[in-house]
Design a protein around this nucleic acid. Structure first.
Lengths: 340, 340
DNA sequence: GAATTTTTTGCAACCGGTTGCATCGACGGG
DNA sequence: CCCGTCGATGCAACCGGTTGCAAAAAATTC
């Protein structure tokens, strides 16, 4: 359908190599031939075939962008930033949806068949087998929003979930609550486990503190609402740390339906600080995850790995911080603050 | 890095063609050679290079998935359904973010360089130049969520926005409102124009009806909230049709901040029925856009165009329907209903 | 103006596959 | 037993590019 190198070469009256060189950064071509080639190419509407060239160069500039978070509003922003960032660097995201029962191996084979130059997994969990499979294939992998470990199998960029748990617990205690709650996502999620660990650690250091721990079935509105409804029936804590903003909004909804006033009757702290947390009719106090930093770092990392895939897997983590809004009561009185 | 056809051929003791054929659907290979080849391939961890084969077959199975809606929560669902649907058919979505000032021509060239087999544009507006450029290149284009026209330049799958405007106006009138409002997105958006047309058409047929028309600066929460705040100051209608759910939620928030009770003091009808419209603490009455149907149809269409790109551009539209929730008062009394 | 260096150019091989064509062998029929 | 048929196989050319190498051309030096 489209014009090829040969067509352009013939029209311009030069060799195919000459044409190839004019389209290759930093190749040696005289101004005259370049001129001839460019007018010929323009006339034919020629575009070099990136796939054909990848055969000899060994670079496709394709990056597999893998995720299973197609229900978390935060990830719309994540996809936006990833696609923009990759595009700006001349890389093309090949999007892979790993939701549901889809066989991860099939996706893995697919990515190898398309010889992606690198892979970014944007998900808290990494499908088993991915690290080894890609290492064997020599394809760099960056795990964004992943669990930070001291001995990572692949490069990880994310937040310190344990520390988030600590921040949350400290915050709830600082607000004067003596009965606090942890409302996590699925108990099997490593992010939930890590946050619980940090939360428990701080709570345990405070004798006499009452702690409720409960888990929602999913990181979703419905699950949050259902679990909080159950919790209200069981006898709730005064304030909860929820493992995600959507979960928090579900819990908020349950509290409102029960006629409770937030933050007076029930306090809530979320996690993520997704856009809607700031909406005035939600106004969620939450712990902000530095999404932009994580993504920028992930992209920079994958770019650097393109040149040198052999770097030892590292974990890079970013600090999170509390965003004060309306679902948690303010500090009781100045006296409780540490002296300035 | 990975094993090639040649490696497998040598290990299996057959020709390269034999190997190629065992991996090609419907090629003629004896059971014996297939066996030899498969064990050799398994031993080497061989995966055929899809890009190399695309060179001769002329098919890449890559589909450009273009969008500029990376801020509308509906589109997370849209990406989910598109990626899943494409994957299930063995197609690979190459995601393109057309947000902001990015040069559409650059994306266009990129898609040609990667020889995508087809393009799906998931956006209400189509970048100018796309239709011709792709037609010239012989690449099928499907415009999802696009404006329906009787003389489409490319295949369009979407909803009838004019009819949505009519439905909204009829609904507001049926609820007994005599002063109704249209709160659109940006006035330049064709979707907004079409909806306004339908809305106005019905309103004009009802003498004595008061109509406010106003436009938000964007399809966003903040814009909806700001515009409704202004409208409340100016003297609002009794009930509004908002051009999008997020916009509606912004308007809802403005009403709540002003101390108005919804739907008693102010009625609201949104459009899209995105997931959060059903959340109990939002509970938005809205017009549902059949997202799944649009996407399934778009994918089926692009698949059929892969075999026969010459089909004349068609517009396929789906009906929308009102989803009754809590932001619009119910029908006043049974007497007003059409007799059964 | 000749000798030397540097730049430009084309040739040909190669990247990893596919495929038309001719050959080869096996098999069934007469 | 010979012939025709047909499936299986390999050869070689091709898909659309890139690149090492040597020759040609241009620029520089003396």
């Amino acid at each position: 359908m489209g014009a090829t190198l040969k067509d352009v070469a013939e029209l311009a009256g030069v060799s195919r190599s000459a044409v190839s060189r004019t389209f290759t950064e930093g190749a040696s071509v005289s101004a005259k031939t370049r001129q001839k080639v460019e007018t010929a190419a323009a006339r034919l509407g020629y575009e070099p075939n990136a796939l054909a060239s990848s055969l000899t160069t060994g670079r496709t500039k394709l990056i597999g962008l893998i995720s299973n978070n197609f229900h978390n509003p935060l990830f719309l922003q994540v996809f936006d930033l990833f696609t923009r960032g990759l595009q700006e660097r001349g890389l093309r995201p090949l999007l892979v949806n790993l939701s549901e029962e889809r066989d991860p191996d099939a996706s893995l084979r697919m990515l190898r068949q398309y010889s992606v130059d690198g892979v970014i997994v944007a998900s808290s969990t990494l499908p088993p087998g991915f690290p080894r499979a890609f290492r064997d294939a020599g394809v760099p992998v960056v795990h964004s929003f992943g669990r930070i470990s001291s001995m990572p199998e692949v490069h990880v960029v994310g937040i310190d979930n344990v520390e988030c748990g600590r921040i949350a617990a400290r915050t709830l205690i600082a607000r004067g609550h003596r009965h606090i709650g942890f409302l996590g996502g699925p108990e099997t999620a490593s992010s939930t486990q890590d946050r619980h660990r940090g939360f428990r650690e701080i709570a345990a250091a405070d004798p006499g503190l009452l702690v409720n721990v409960t888990y929602a079935a999913a990181y979703s509105f419905e699950a949050g609402r259902a679990e909080m409804t159950r919790e209200l029936a069981r006898g709730p804590a005064e304030a909860y740390f929820c493992g995600d903003d959507v979960l928090s909004i579900g819990a908020l909804s349950a509290a409102q339906s029960a006629g409770l006033s937030v933050p007076d009757d029930l306090g809530l702290v979320g996690l993520n600080d997704m856009e809607m947390a700031g909406w005035q009719n939600i106004d969620l106090t939450t712990i902000r995850q530095p999404v932009r930093d994580i993504i920028d770092t992930s992209i920079a990392l994958v770019v650097s790995l393109l040149d040198d895939a052999a770097q030892l897997p590292q974990a890079r983590l970013f600090p999170c911080r509390l965003i004060e809004r309306g679902t948690l009561r303010p500090l009781k009185d100045a006296a409780k603050r540490p002296p300035a």
